[in-house]
Design a protein around this nucleic acid. Structure first.
Length: 1039
RNA sequence: GGGCCCGUGGCUCAGCCUGGUUAGAGCGCUCGCCUGAUAAGCGAGAGGUCCGGGGUUCAAACCCCCGCGGGCCCA
């Protein structure tokens, strides 16, 4: 059965059921004799997929389906990223927790269990959503970062790093979230606008009265930790005498900034006392501005340092707190400054901060500013809006804080990483060569430790007595019985201790891994390496991965880093970087903007295949500005596909028996050859698009081929052929052609529109499987996905014919245009169509004469190289007047007497000779006049001239057709069966349609036609206006 | 401040790598056609400073430089 209306939801329901009941995916999965190793970038288990994730999986599915049809055995394990802060934060919110202490109080064991339940529950929800996208992955056997085997792989990897000397515990300034009380990686910091104080502070120079070096900062709370001031060695600085409220003092700032600083401080510049280079300032001592408040600072020697990172902005002197800034830290190392960090995990000052002890740093800014003001050290205060880092999950502003953390020394393998990038195929090219390389070459050592609970425990144990470190590389080394995945998490793992050689007790460092490290090991953890070796040796590295461009710093990076550390090579061979999904205005979709479009919403409206076509229609690496209207268009296209197949189905099932018997009697007509050539070219483009990951190109090719060429043109051309008597070779050939087109094109497109393609395979291709077997020698399979991707049959490609058909279509369009101008309906036959053009057009007209004639509905067509037109010339008085003056009159006479040939030669030469002088042709206006009765229209390769004059004979035919049209419509209103006969009564004269009565009778299946009828009896009556004539028509069913 | 990408009719995009007819398509709009695929289908028309400015060239949407706007990433 073939429902007349295309209902995506019904089709989906049926196909999904079919796949499920017959375990099609499982069967397809077994096929293939070459390996294709795909690694899924694990989505984070938030519980809901969004458009971007949907798009991402659809891209993956298209590639995987294609590869399967190319006889690959595809490794398609989906992945889930299930550890880390995002889930902890969600669970904390659920339990109404505010700080880590709440978690400890509640019990880490219970908390971690909750996190795991939450993650698993979300995984289930999201799996269902992905399934609805018709994504075929091994949903029953995903890889999960929380599984013991997975953790085993992560531990093995970090052990590798340790053995190679690439794992270090270091004191470093890290991004710190005071709410989550943990270090964060660069990748976990999100930059957002924030308003902060912007203050200029005077630091008193030691031993010089009323002399200050002026610094600028947006983080007053870091001032208690100030250890130095940095200046640029090559800049010029000044000591200037300035005056305010009658009081004089001296300030040191960069020379170029003196004026603006003075203005901010409302100073009057008296004079420049001294000028020096930055170098000369090195070692200059000053007093800490808050040494009274922070007694610790009293014993510290503060002085000026040199640093290249200083820029000519604000004051040109930079406040240095090695405990609160990365640059500051490294500068501090150089100068031997103390890494003073008087702030604890929660962002609260410790006792070392003196007066400020116990104060939250977020509340400290105003207190410190007040203190500075009181002490007369605040030169100026304002506010500034700037981009500032925030915790990616809880959105708290991050702080920089020196702490001891575990690092993977990326800086030492960076060169190798860059070399490996070159060996990978990047789509597009610049994703690797420019973007990713830029990120990697700027990468610092990777901080992999987090002071949290829900993550892979870092497998490092340290002896309490001698400090010896033990890193374990496998869960077996734990020496405990592992009954569930929870056993390899905190707090169970924390309970494990080892005995040190020194006799001391080794305890695990309490940290867990950065989640990016989890996903970084995915390509071998998914193969359960190192526990299982065979698959890894056979498959690794990945043949293909694809993710959004945000993963440059995320998964592309974490995988490369982890893999170079473990194996000295990139873990992937090809990477397709895709874009972001934005709203239709190009803005990021976010809950706060309220512009989030849910995938389910779109699927409900247009169906999964239309959704897939839509997201696959634009270049994958470009951002996708989502527009529902655009997406709906693809539903319309699929509707056309549906109707085209249904059209074929209707006739072909009627003639099925004849078709089976006669399917070997094939005589291809020119239009058949044409569409078969187009079919091969379409398959070629699609194959190429999929091979090169230019997946959008196939969508366009499909619309061009199936909608434009097959449905809108080929089916129009062969309409009359399917109405021929049973088993005519011409009809059989059309059926053969249609079968081949639908068969091959659906196979080619099935990776894109799996549901529709499968449905058509089940209901159309299967219906004609005997024929398919007989003529194409291909046995029907259980599902279209057990078929292979169509072979390209080069022999069928005829580019010359395709070109010719383009001309024919053009001619048809130009003719429609001319008809419209002349108000001649397509239904009305016309006498003559003249086509003018070059050799190409000539050839096309010769090849496709019949097609052009029928489609354009003309009795005759004629090709000419040059259509004869009358040339007429008129004098251009405006131009001619000033040149010819009084001779204009005789010039006019001369021009009027010129023959057509003379005029043509004038046009050719561009000059007109008059009374021995050569004049520019612009003195006359040349006009071409086409002969009476013709209407002209242009097309790409030439022009057409349509003869639109009517004569009596033609007009009768026109009227006959008009009447037929009306009667047909009335039949439809009456709901008559196609085969039923009728009686017809007309209120017009018989002479009206003389000669066409048989035609009308035949067309409308009439038994009897009565003219000038009085309509006596039981007629279905309707009055029509046919070209100004009132015509009354009655019909009735023949009994 | 830096890196990368994008900017083409009202909308969404193709074309750019490899410069060369009149810059294409779909949607929308206006007008019309078709009527045995019909709760469908089809055609025509209008609509463009190819973001702006320079340069290279006989020739630039396309190559180069400088801006402007948007996105992603970094400082």
């Amino acid at each position: 059965m073939f429902p007349p209306i295309y209902s995506p939801s019904d089709v989906e329901k049926e196909v999904f059921q079919f796949w499920h009941d017959n375990r099609i995916y499982e069967k397809v999965k077994k096929n293939g004799d070459k390996d294709f190793f795909f690694v899924d970038g694990p989505p984070y288990t938030t519980g809901e997929i969004h458009l971007g994730t949907a798009w991402n999986k659809v891209i993956k599915d298209v590639i995987l389906r294609y590869k399967r049809m190319c006889n690959y055995r595809v490794r398609d394990t989906p992945g889930w990223d299930m550890h880390g802060l995002p889930i902890e934060v969600k669970v904390e919110t659920l339990l109404k927790f505010k700080t880590k202490r709440d978690i400890e109080k509640y019990g880490v064991s219970k908390f971690v269990k909750k996190c795991m339940e939450f993650a698993l529950e979300n995984k289930e929800k999201m799996t269902e959503q992905f399934k609805r996208l018709a994504v075929w992955m091994d949903w029953d056997n995903p890889y999960m970062t929380i599984k013991a085997d997975y953790i085993n792989a992560a531990w093995w990897t970090i052990k590798r790093a340790y053995d190679r000397g690439l794992l270090e515990k270091k004191l470093r300034v890290v991004n710190w979230c005071p709410r989550c009380e943990t270090a964060l990686a660069e990748a976990e910091v999100e930059y957002m606008d924030k308003v902060d104080p912007s203050i200029y502070v005077k630091f008193p120079i030691k031993g010089e009265k009323d002399t200050y070096i002026v610094i600028w900062t947006t983080t007053p709370w870091t001032l208690p930790a100030n250890m130095a001031v940095a200046v640029h060695p090559d800049y010029t600085y000044v000591k200037a005498l300035v005056k305010k409220d009658g009081k004089e003092e001296k300030i040191i700032v960069a020379k170029d900034l003196l004026e603006s600083v003075a203005k901010k401080g409302e100073y009057e510049i008296v004079k420049i006392v001294e000028e020096f280079s930055g170098k000369e300032l090195e070692g200059l001592e000053y007093e800490h501005p808050l040494s009274d408040e922070v007694p610790y600072q009293k014993d510290v020697k503060h002085f000026v340092c040199l640093a290249d990172f200083v820029v000519v902005e604000n004051t040109g002197c930079v406040h240095i707190a090695p405990g609160h800034g990365a640059d500051d830290f490294y500068l501090g190392q150089k100068y031997g400054l103390e890494v003073f960090n008087p702030v604890d995990d929660r962002g609260v000052y410790t006792d070392k901060a003196g007066k400020y002890a116990g104060i939250d740093i977020r509340k400290a800014n105003s207190i410190i500013i007040e203190d500075l003001k009181r002490k007369g050290l605040l030169l100026h205060k304002e506010e500034i809006t700037h981009r500032y880092g925030h915790c990616w999950r809880c959105k708290s502003p991050i702080i920089y804080r020196a702490t001891e953390q575990w690092f993977v020394c990326v800086s030492r393998v960076k060169e190798k990483m860059l070399k490996e990038i070159d060996k990978v195929q990047w789509i597009p090219d610049w994703a690797g060569s420019s973007r990713f390389k830029d990120w990697v070459s700027n990468a610092r050592d990777w901080c992999i430790s987090r002071q949290r609970y829900w993550g892979i425990p870092i497998p490092v144990w340290i002896c309490e007595r001698c400090g010896k470190i033990k890193v374990i590389g496998s869960i077996d080394e734990l020496g405990i019985e592992i009954n569930s995945d929870l056993d390899v998490h905190r707090p169970r793992v924390d309970e494990v201790t080892f005995e040190c050689e020194c006799g001391g007790k080794m305890k695990r460092v309490p940290d867990v891994f950065d989640v990016w490290f989890d996903s970084g090991v995915a390509s071998w953890a998914t193969l359960r390496y190192p526990k299982v070796k065979e698959e890894f040796e056979k498959l690794w590295p990945a043949d293909f991965i694809t993710e959004g461009h945000d993963q440059t710093r995320g998964w592309f990076y974490s995988q490369l880093g982890a893999s170079v550390i473990a194996f000295d090579r990139a873990p992937y061979k090809a990477v397709l970087m895709h874009g972001f999904s934005l709203d239709k205005y190009g803005r990021k979709m976010s809950k706060s903007l309220g512009n989030v479009v849910k995938p389910e919403e779109v699927l409900d409206r247009i169906g999964v295949d239309a959704f897939r076509l839509y997201v696959l229609s634009s270049a994958p690496w470009e951002d996708l500005k989502f527009s529902m209207e655009e997406a709906e268009m693809y539903r319309k296209f699929l509707n056309i596909v549906w109707n085209a197949v249904r059209f074929a189905y209707m006739y072909m099932t009627l003639d099925k028996e004849e078709f089976i018997e006669n399917c070997n009697k094939i005589e291809l007509k020119v239009e058949d050859k044409w569409i078969l050539s187009r079919l091969e070219n379409f398959c070629k483009i699609t194959k190429d698009a999929l091979e090169t990951y230019n997946i959008h190109k196939a969508v366009k090719a499909f619309v061009d081929f199936f909608v434009e060429d097959f449905s809108r043109w080929y089916i129009q051309l062969i309409r009359s052929r399917v109405w021929e008597e049973k088993a005519s070779p011409s009809k059989m050939t059309a059926y053969f052609t249609i079968l081949k087109v639908i068969d091959k094109s659906m196979r080619a497109m099935s990776p894109y529109i799996p549901v529709t393609a499968e449905w058509i395979y089940q209901h159309f291709i299967k219906e004609f499987c005997e024929i398919r077997e007989k003529v194409f020698e291909s046995k029907i399979k259980e599902s279209i996905f057990m078929e292979s991707f169509p072979e390209i049959e080069e022999d069928f490609i005829n580019n010359e014919l395709e070109e010719a058909m383009k001309v024919a279509k053009d001619v048809f369009e130009a003719t429609s245009n001319a008809r419209q101008k002349a108000k001649r309906k397509l239904r009305w036959p016309l006498r003559l169509l003249v086509i003018e053009g070059d050799e190409k057009v000539k050839k096309a007209v010769k090849m496709l004469e019949e097609i052009i004639k029928t489609q354009c509905n003309v009795k005759e067509i004629k090709y000419v190289e040059k259509f004869e037109k009358k040339v007429k010339a008129q004098v251009n008085y405006k131009e001619a007047g000033p040149i010819l003056k009084d001779k204009v009159r005789s010039f006019v006479e001369y021009v009027n007497n010129m023959s057509e040939e003379e005029l043509m030669s004038v046009v050719g030469s561009g000059e007109i000779e008059f009374e021995g002088k050569k004049l520019p042709v612009s003195l006359i206006n040349i006009k071409y006049e086409i002969p009476e009765g013709y209407v002209e229209s242009e097309f790409s390769y030439g022009k057409i001239y349509l003869y639109v004059e009517m004569d009596d004979e033609l007009w009768k035919e026109c009227l006959a057709r008009e009447i037929v049209r009306r009667i047909q419509e009335m039949r439809k209103i009456m709901n008559l069966n196609v085969e039923e006969y009728i009686d017809v009564a007309l209120s017009c004269k018989k002479e009206f349609v003389n000669g066409w009565i048989d035609y009308i009778t035949r067309e409308v299946r009439a038994k009897n036609i009565e003219f000038e009828s009085k309509f006596e009896g039981d007629w279905f009556l309707k009055e029509w206006d046919i070209e100004g004539e009132k015509v009354k028509i009655g019909i009735k069913r023949c009994s």
